[in-house]
Design a protein around this nucleic acid. Structure first.
Length: 360
DNA sequence: AACAGTCTCAACCGCCTCGAG
DNA sequence: TCTCGAGGCGGTTGAGACTGT
């Protein structure tokens, strides 16, 4: 039982790996396979610790590791999963084939986090920062602000990588837009501004339901298992005055919560009499409608992605979710907000005017 | 051209979990 | 049951690349 420590030893090299070191490591692993990292440096003739070898292999040298630009679909998955799971990078990376946790983490920190901040979204809570501010005057965008929409392909000129330009590169020191405040900037800001007001409403609804669920946690409900894709048991436990009043309460509460129930896009779908909130179907239905109403190939693809995500992974998560896990479950709703953010232009062009009227 | 400021991401650090002994 | 090391994980760092002046 006397194992020697992995990373102690004199003369161990640190820092960037050379091509020669990479070749040595690849050659050794091809011949002997992965595992036994403690002994690999010595056997492969490397002056590195085993941990460093493992990291180099798993993150960069492994044949099935995909490097380079993240697709918009990958970005959406990262944002949605981060909303529900936080900084669980390995967990998030498992949903992105060929991506490593380190790469996802770096991409979040250098690109997605900044983008959310620039769009007025708290990257920790995934809620619009403006949500608590009900003063309507703040929704009027100043003319000299830069675009807050997701970067277009033209924006790539501002960065050496594929990321969106940073705020510092978009705003001059005097506060004027570095790119000249063109009409397109103002149009894009208007799109975002409209969508952000809608998102503020969504965030407020999420907060409301969170408070209700928190209240339901008190007492005997804490051990209750939440039935698959339905909140009805949680709420009905709180309502002792018979089924009718319970249903009325649920109807009012969930209709108040559900941000899409009154949308024109939503009218084909109705809640059941027990007012189940079907996490799997309600939002995916919404996405399907969006996709159907727009023939843009990219949007169709994105909608399909969102649908897959919700119908597979999230539904499994919900089906095994207890009331104690309400936070992670509600994170999925917050993820919906982020999905809307990523489709700000699209949603504005199709339905946000009518949606906005429903909530303002 | 030179310098300073900013950004990116590969790599490291330290803690945690799990399983073998 | 306890100890210890391997591997996993998330946070942080710093060298190099890039941009602005």
């Amino acid at each position: 039982m006397s194992r020697k420590p992995c990373c102690v030893g004199e003369g161990l090299k640190k820092g960037a790996w050379t091509t020669e070191e990479d070749k040595q490591l690849i050659s050794y692993i091809h011949e002997h396979g992965e595992g036994g990292w403690r002994d690999i440096p010595q056997k492969a003739g490397l002056k590195r610790c085993g941990k460093s070898c493992r990291l180099r292999w798993t993150n960069y040298l492994k044949p099935d590791v995909q490097r380079g630009e993240f697709s918009s679909e990958e970005e959406q998955i990262i944002i949605m999963l981060h909303a529900s799971r936080g900084n669980k990078w390995s967990d998030i990376a498992r949903h992105l084939p060929r991506r490593t946790d380190n790469e996802v983490k770096n991409y979040w920190n250098t690109h997605l986090k900044k983008r959310l901040i620039e769009q007025g979204i708290d990257p920790v809570t995934h809620k619009p920062v403006l949500a608590s501010n009900s003063n309507p005057t703040v929704t009027t965008p100043p003319e000299n602000l830069p675009s807050l929409a997701a970067p277009s392909s033209d924006d790539k000129q501002y960065s050496r990588s594929s990321s969106m330009p940073s705020l510092s590169r978009l705003i001059n020191k005097d506060g004027t837009p570095a790119q000249g405040g063109s009409l397109s900037h103002r149009k894009r800001f208007k799109k975002w501004s409209s969508t952000s007001r809608l998102l503020n409403k969504v965030a407020a609804k999420v907060t409301s339901v969170k408070e209700i669920l928190s209240a339901s946690m008190e007492g005997s409900l804490s051990a209750t298992t939440l039935p698959y894709a339905s909140y009805s048991n949680v709420f009905s436990e709180q309502i002792p005055n018979g089924e009718d009043s319970s249903n009325a309460f649920l109807t009012n509460t969930l209709a108040e919560f559900d941000p899409f129930s009154q949308s024109p896009l939503y009218n084909e779908h109705e809640f059941s009499s027990t007012c189940d909130l079907d996490i799997e179907n309600d939002f995916s239905h919404f996405l399907e409608k969006l996709g159907r109403d727009d023939h843009n190939e990219e949007n169709d693809m994105n909608v399909e992605y969102g649908h897959d995500l919700l119908t597979s992974d999230v539904s499994q998560e919900v089906s095994s979710t207890s009331v104690d896990d309400q936070d992670s479950m509600l994170g999925n709703f917050e993820g919906w907000s982020n999905y809307l953010i990523d489709h700000a232009d699209f949603i504005y062009d199709t339905e946000s005017d009518s949606l906005e009227k429903q909530f303002m």
